[in-house]
């Protein structure tokens, strides 16, 4: 009788979990397994799947456009991550102090995070526009040369990185604010008495004490950065001369322009593997113990 009861209880538990289990099977497990199978096939969606073994892999190794997209993505990360962390940290530090209208600023910085990426990109496309864009108009006003934000192959990716930073920085400000609030006030007071300046307190107390938050932000923005897609898709289509072709945009093009489903799946797994390596290296380099 008792056993029966226990079983009943369990059944309710599973029932509660069912929506998520269905979701997981349908939208996570199934695509994952299916794309792993795809890796060893050639498939154009319409026709039948042909088993090709490791052909997709050898193709990947010699696909210079893929390596270029990877390079582009790394350039994006190299600008976007440091910029994002530094700006978020500085602003969070300011917002953590007693300033007027603190609540307003906290909300204001968070706003771009909740706006659709497509909308943000379209607004920035206009800001960056060569002749009619706000940035270049302002530059002309003060008699400076115009900057070919999205036209130059050298500047297009940095321009996208700046925009992505503007969009995401609010989220990381919030995370840093939470981290900063966990640092005991008495540490700053002890440092005051020890004779530390504001900058010294920031370097010797704040930074080491919020290391876990920094690592989290680093990893989140690495993951976010590797999935760079909407911005170049809407803004530049990957150009000029493939200089803003990101990994995910390239995968998307392989899959839905050229219908190379098997190859696109292979690229997907390759990128996931590279992200894992990058994150492992980041943690090795930057992670310390947790102190708070």
């Amino acid at each position: 009788m008792k056993k029966m009861n226990k079983y009943e209880n369990n059944r309710v538990g599973y029932l509660m979990g069912l929506p998520y289990i269905i979701f997981f099977l349908l939208f996570v497990a199934y695509p994952l397994i299916f794309s792993f199978i795809l890796v060893f096939h050639k498939w154009d969606i319409i026709g039948p799947m042909n088993f090709v073994g490791f052909v997709n892999f050898s193709h990947l190794l010699h696909d210079s456009l893929f390596w270029k997209s990877l390079g582009n993505t790394l350039i994006f990360l190299a600008i976007h991550i440091p910029l994002q962390i530094i700006i978020a940290l500085v602003i969070a530090n300011i917002l953590n102090q007693k300033i007027v209208a603190r609540g307003f600023f906290r909300a204001a910085f968070f706003l771009p995070v909740v706006i659709s990426g497509v909308v943000v990109t379209m607004i920035w496309q206009q800001l960056y526009s060569q002749e009619t864009g706000l940035f270049n108009m302002l530059l002309s006003k003060i008699s400076l040369p115009k900057i070919p934000w999205l036209i130059s192959t050298k500047l297009a990716m940095p321009s996208i990185a700046i925009m992505a930073t503007w969009k995401n920085v609010g989220l990381y400000i919030v995370l840093f604010l939470a981290g900063l609030q966990n640092v005991p006030v008495s540490l700053y007071e002890a440092a005051d008495l020890d004779g530390a300046t504001g900058v010294q307190k920031f370097l010797h107390i704040t930074i080491p004490m919020i290391n876990p938050t920094i690592i989290m932000v680093l990893i989140l923005s690495t993951l976010g950065g590797f999935s760079l897609f909407i911005e170049p898709y809407v803004m530049t289509g990957g150009g000029p001369m493939n200089s803003t072709l990101s990994c995910v945009l390239y995968i998307y093009k392989q899959a839905f322009y050229f219908n190379h489903m098997g190859y696109a799946a292979t690229l997907g797994f390759a990128v996931a593997f590279i992200i894992m390596i990058v994150v492992i290296i980041q943690r090795r380099l930057f992670e310390t113990e947790i102190y708070t």
């Binding site: 005991p184 008495s186 540490l187 008495l193 020890d194 004779g195 107390i205 102190y291």
Partner: peptide, 20 residues
């Protein structure tokens, strides 16, 4: 005069040691 320049030192109740 700021605390660091007062030639004054303080031992806190929770010690406030730098944990890192």
């Amino acid at each position: 005069i700021p605390p660091g320049k007062r030639d004054v030192t303080m031992v806190f109740q929770d010690y406030a040691l730098y944990p890192h």
